[in-house]
Simulated assay, not measured.
Amino acid sequence: MTMITHPLPLMEKYYADRGSVPGTLVISEATAISHIEEGQANNPGFVSDSQVKAWSKIIDAVHANGSFYFQQIWGMGRASDPGHLTERGLPYRSSSAVPMRGVGVTPTALTEDEILETIQNFVETAKRAIAAGADGVEIHSAHGYLLDQFLTSSVNQRTDKWGGSIENRSRLTLEVAKAVVKAIGAERVAIRFSPYAGFQGSEKTDSVELYTHLIAELKKMKFKFAYLSLVEATGDPGALVRGEKAINIGKTLDFILEVWDNYSPVMVAGGYQPESAARAVETHYKNWDVMVAFGRYFISNPDLVFRIQQGIPLAPYNRPTFYLQKQWEGYNDYPFSQEYLKAHPNAVHPMTE
């Protein structure tokens, strides 16, 4: 049995609203590169014709507001719900047969053919996204999902060319990056890393060595990537979302920025608010071409960019509604500021469907 999930019409409004200030860069939620990687109920893919058609409407809505749109693409690997995959007759896989804490099922290790197929799935999904109108794609190699499961030594216990040494554990991410760039052009490709996160068993004992190698190898490709997306130690979902103990606090991304050396822009995320973001760009990151991403506050502030520009306080978010499925609540019921509505009298109030 195969269940195909595709974006709902309410998502067109959500994404368009967050791109309501022209020039905003909107990055989608992570979308699967194959139906196997649609690892949990209601997780979206960018695979079938119906999925592509639905996403294209979202992309068009963002572009209609004069903003830019990147599709984040991933594999979930062992972060999938094994029961959900079993119901659909699909395999539960990872870099190695190493179970995730709290999950009572051990994944199977991807075969060589499955790894090569995964690379091709990233390529084909990237091509579909560009054909649907996206300005680019962001390859998700972070937070304990599939590509990160190859990077992490405690998860990746392979003894072939895809595991063991830092060079081998880095191979899949680098091969995906190279293949996607060849397919759609480097200026349309970004890559996301979380060097210090522990989410879903992604904590690494060799972060500096591993990411120094990864960044150096990406530079050697001589591709001008759209940007490099990095999660700071303060942005670990384990601590922010699940209330787990924060790890690696105080460690910085400076070593990556020094190796990257302004090769292309860098995006950082880490629980920022407007004041701390401005301070980081003006002080800590002043020597680098750095931009700051917002996540949780973009959920509760459809006019976040306008509010920052005008010095308007941000509306608080309601965490219990973050992951309600197929619901208007917690998604499209956060209002624009009165200042925005006054300046844009033709804007549709988000409380109205």
Rank of each mutant, 00 (worst) to 15 (best):
I4F: 08
D17H: 15
R18H: 12
G19R: 08
G19A: 08
A30N: 07
A32R: 12
N42F: 15
F46N: 01
V62R: 00
F70P: 00
P82K: 06
P82D: 04
G83L: 12
H84I: 01
T86P: 00
T86D: 13
G89R: 07
L90V: 03
R93A: 14
S94I: 08
S96G: 11
P99C: 11
M100I: 14
M100A: 04
T108F: 01
L110Q: 13
L110C: 08
D113W: 09
I115G: 05
L116W: 11
T118M: 10
T118L: 15
F122W: 04
T125D: 07
A129Y: 15
A129T: 05
A131Y: 06
A134I: 10
G136S: 04
E138K: 07
A142P: 01
G144H: 04
L146R: 02
Q149S: 03
S153E: 07
S154H: 07
N156R: 05
D160S: 06
K161M: 09
G163R: 00
N168R: 11
A177H: 13
E187S: 07
P195F: 04
G198A: 07
E203C: 09
T205L: 03
T212L: 11
T212G: 13
H213G: 01
K222P: 00
K222F: 07
F223R: 08
F225H: 05
A226F: 08
E232C: 13
T234Q: 09
G235Y: 10
V241E: 12
K245S: 13
F255T: 00
L257T: 11
E258Q: 12
Y263G: 03
Y263L: 08
G270M: 04
Y272P: 01
S276Q: 01
V281A: 11
V281L: 14
K286G: 00
V290Q: 02
A293P: 04
A293L: 09
F294V: 10
I299P: 06
V305M: 03
V305T: 15
G311L: 14
I312H: 13
L314P: 03
A315N: 13
P316M: 10
Y317N: 14
P320R: 08
Y331C: 05
A343I: 00
V348W: 13
H349Q: 10
